[in-house]
Design a protein around this nucleic acid. Sequence first.
DNA 1: TCAATAATTCAATTATTATTGAAACATGCA
DNA 2: TGCATGTTTCAATAATAATTGAATTATTGA
Lengths: 127, 127
Amino acid sequence: MQTNDAAPILASLAQPTRLDIFRALVVAGPAGMPAGALADGLGVAPTALSFHLKELRFAQLVDSEQQGRFVIYRARFDTMNALLSFLTENCCAGTARSADADTCCPPVKKKQGSSSSKSTISKGYKS
Amino acid sequence: MQTNDAAPILASLAQPTRLDIFRALVVAGPAGMPAGALADGLGVAPTALSFHLKELRFAQLVDSEQQGRFVIYRARFDTMNALLSFLTENCCAGTARSADADTCCPPVKKKQGSSSSKSTISKGYKS
DNA sequence: TCAATAATTCAATTATTATTGAAACATGCA
DNA sequence: TGCATGTTTCAATAATAATTGAATTATTGA
């Protein structure tokens, strides 16, 4: 994944209603939920819900499947996993990962002076 | 963390330039980088960079510190960790976490029929 | 003090997103 | 067929965000 793939996915999660929708679908798990149950549960107007679900589907964060007159929505864990990997992939650059619950690396007491690591964008500057 | 805390943080990452800035700062680690080096490395106009850094600072994703005539920016790992925890906290609802690299849970072959889990928003519907 | 460098603020423009209500489409059942 | 339910589309409006260039502030060194 790259910046330009990740940004639209993040954008679709960056809206309270959509974030709530996605989280509800994560909790619902593989069984998914029909649109109406989401609307009722979250107190969102059907029109607004449809709009947000469309955004989430476009970002590949959810799947939908028609079941009778319901449309069942499911969270796409594969996309979420790819996003999380992308967000954490440079997190531990050069440092060991904490044994603790932290997913991204904590600030580490570093020793100064070793010249810039693998960054392609670091640029010399004199302090 | 709650939806309304997470959404603005996600929003500040949901913009390609800002995502690149943040990732560059993650790679730079605790030493951080001055604004100008980011501008040069990423090819962003100083004005635009300032705008985006302000957004990131507002979202508490970066810190800044004046050092001489440079302003050094650093990624805030604490905020990123909190965000990642929030995004993954319901991921494995009821299912064992994969031993693999997946941070969020993969879809699991589920058995149907057990009534809705701990969701507060699930709502009965007949398929 | 003056000039040069680093960074930010301001104002104007453009582009994108979210919300609403009305209408339309689709499915299931009497 | 015809009505009720579930969901989506459309059009209009309101709100937010991003980009640009010019001007401003702050720091350093000649």
